[in-house]
């Protein structure tokens, strides 16, 4: 379905992200995120697939799906999908000593590359230190890490070198430069900040939001619905919304901790991170502290694909929890598939 978008999906805002079914737009990348979480967890926990097939099938499937989302182009969905995959892989790898070393190496290298990109490139020399320890621990994994590190470094250099060329789309450049403060903030962010700020402590009141009702605030029913809500209900309303999200994520993590099966636990955490990351990015974007991305606020924003996809996620999580509890109560001796 993702591949079919390039042939059957209409061109909306210069992208092929949706299928048009009657009056409704259907976004397959929302469902691809769930598929990626299920697939990654299945791939790493399955004992039915042979080791070589496992590498090909698992890695190939993830790369193919991510590439199809990236080509639409949908950078926001690609980043969210990557976060889901990385979270599941990290949680799985952390139980091995080598996995822990790999995570430390990855985080250290990423931080050093970020510092190097923002200040001076000679800082990259320091990335050799974690690599040396990793090579000493396991030279095969160390070589793979060195290759990945090389890709990361050259990717950063390539992006920096091609920043002022047409390869990087202008809207991506504008959003990131606006976020970094190197250019004036975009119209969307300015209007969003005005909406949030003008709400005050208790808000302007029901149906009194001028930013949304007079159409100053763009996408006030989807991406910027948080600003529209805060303008009307103020800081107090915002705290209520954030508390609800806190309760939801807290409960979902609690459910993950109750589940003993590794496959189910990885999926619950991966999918919870998906909803959490979307909330985090949307709120950050509305407040102007993160770059603008087309990410809906889970369960609140208008949109069928997002709502149905999140409903599927909650259904999956509740199913895992419900049947785990049942097994515990009725017959603890049942071994899981």
């Amino acid at each position: 379905m993702l591949a079919g978008l390039f042939f059957l999906g209409p061109l909306v805002n210069s992208t092929h992200r949706w299928y048009k079914i009657g009056q409704f737009l259907f976004q397959p990348s929302e469902f691809a995120k769930i598929a990626l979480a299920l697939w990654t967890a299945y791939w790493i926990t399955s004992e039915h697939i042979k080791a070589r097939a496992k590498m090909f099938l698992g890695g190939g499937g993830i790369v193919a799906t991510l590439s199809l989302i990236l080509l639409q182009p949908d950078f926001g969905a690609t980043i969210i999908s990557l976060v889901i995959v990385c979270t599941i892989l990290f949680l799985w790898a952390i139980k091995f000593q080598l996995g822990r070393m790999l995570i430390i190496w990855f985080v250290t290298t990423a931080v050093i590359v970020l510092f190097a990109a923002l200040s001076t490139w000679w800082l990259l020399v320091f990335s050799l230190v974690p690599l040396y320890f990793l090579l000493r621990e396991n030279w095969k994994v160390g070589l793979i890490a060195a290759t990945l590190g090389g890709v990361l470094v050259f990717g950063t250099i390539a992006v920096t070198a091609t920043w002022n060329t047409p390869i990087i789309p202008s809207y991506v450049k504008n959003r990131i430069e606006s976020f970094l403060g190197t250019q004036e903030e975009t119209f969307q962010i300015r209007q969003s900040k005005i909406a949030i700020g003008s709400g005050g402590l208790w808000g302007k009141g029901i149906s009194q939001g001028t930013q949304s009702r007079l159409r100053f605030l763009p996408e006030y029913t989807t991406d910027f619905i948080f600003s529209a809500f805060v303008e009307e209900r103020g800081f107090a309303g915002m705290m209520l919304l954030l508390t609800l999200y806190l309760v939801l994520f807290g409960r979902l993590i609690f459910l993950a901790m109750q589940v003993k099966d590794e496959y189910a636990r990885l999926i619950i955490i991966g999918l919870t991170v998906k909803i959490w990351f979307e909330t985090f990015v949307n709120l950050g974007m509305n407040m102007g502290v993160l770059p603008t991305k087309g990410v809906a606020l889970p369960f609140v924003s208008y949109g069928g694909s997002s709502l149905v996809a999140n409903a599927i996620i909650i259904g999956i999580i509740l199913s895992f929890y419900r049947y785990e509890a049942k097994r515990d109560t009725i017959s603890p001796s049942i071994t899981l598939a």
Binding site: R213, L214, I225, A228, F299, V300
Partner: peptide, 14 residues
């Protein structure tokens, strides 16, 4: 959360 979203859609109709 869902009904908050619906409420905002209702109150912010232009």
């Amino acid at each position: 959360l869902f009904f908050i979203g619906v409420f905002v859609l209702y109150t912010t109709s232009p």
